[in-house]
Amino acid sequence: MADFQTSTHRSKWIFSPQKLIEKYKAANKRAKQTLDTCGATLMEVDVDGSLTYPQPHPNANDNGEKHSRIKPLSIEEEQSIKVFYENKLQEVCNNFHFPHKIQATALIFFKRFYLQWSVMEHQPKNIMLTCIYAACKIEENHVSAEELGKGISQDHQMILNNEMIVYQSLDFDLIVYAPYRSVEGFTDSMEELCISGEDELQKFKALQNTARLEVDKMMLTDSPLLFPPGQLALAALRTSNALHTVVDFDSFLSRIFSHQNSTHTMTELLESLDAIDSWVRKYKSPSEKELKHINRKLKSCWGHSSHDEGKKREKKSKHKSRKSSNEALNT
């Protein structure tokens, strides 16, 4: 696989924690502003892949009181929604028995997509499915949109509608590096370092399996946007090794460290591994109750409120928005 060192993954898609927060804030803020001006946040993606923005409510300002009833999601709430759909994404991939690599690619696509957008702007259910579809295409495990849609009883047209906006939002940087391969690579070098007998081999297998499960957990946190796959793999192996005690991990680290002319110091590496661990520890799935509450808020942001007016707005926007979007531009 192309070289990670020169990859777009490394040069463009690994952020500092501050940068990540900035991006979440920016997307959230934009959606909030849209809500203020338009009374809704959801963008419609049409059959032709075009985006339709919510139309500004003519009296938005005068009417502030009315719209103020619709509350935007906080960044934390957005995070909960994303966590929920990332879990869903793993579920769907498991149901289809897709290889791990596809699941990881789809997850990374999903995370990158929501660096650019708020969940208030694009429905995460649709984006999640489109990310899976795109990941299959990229990894040459082609599944037709129809097949994918059927498997989860969703309209596959929605997947196709969103495909281009997903590629665009990923800036067409579609080759991603998941930590699974690094886990294998590091396990291999551990084996080489420790001349091992038959039952040792079993131990390494167990070590590797647990590490893979650790990576699965990491993939649900922000850490794939913060750390290179090699560090994620090492953190997973360290945790796994703490359980299985197969090797002296510190001496393993210094061994591989001496082999790579790394730009980092050992201390920095250990700090990263600790940070990754803490991301995994901090991770929590929102409770069902919380989710219900957030979901309700989210739906009203989308303009999908249960009362009639919301429905009407939705319908109307389908017809009117084309014209109005141009009008919006012209102003």
Binding site: A26, G49, L51, P56, N326
Partner: peptide, 24 residues
């Protein structure tokens, strides 16, 4: 489209409908 924020259609993304063409 992605990063910007000024509210409605931040720098005019898509939505152009100039070409009648197919339903696309």
């Amino acid at each position: 489209q992605a990063g910007m924020s000024s509210g409605i259609n931040p720098a005019g993304i898509p939505m152009q409908r100039g070409v009648p063409q197919q339903a696309h």
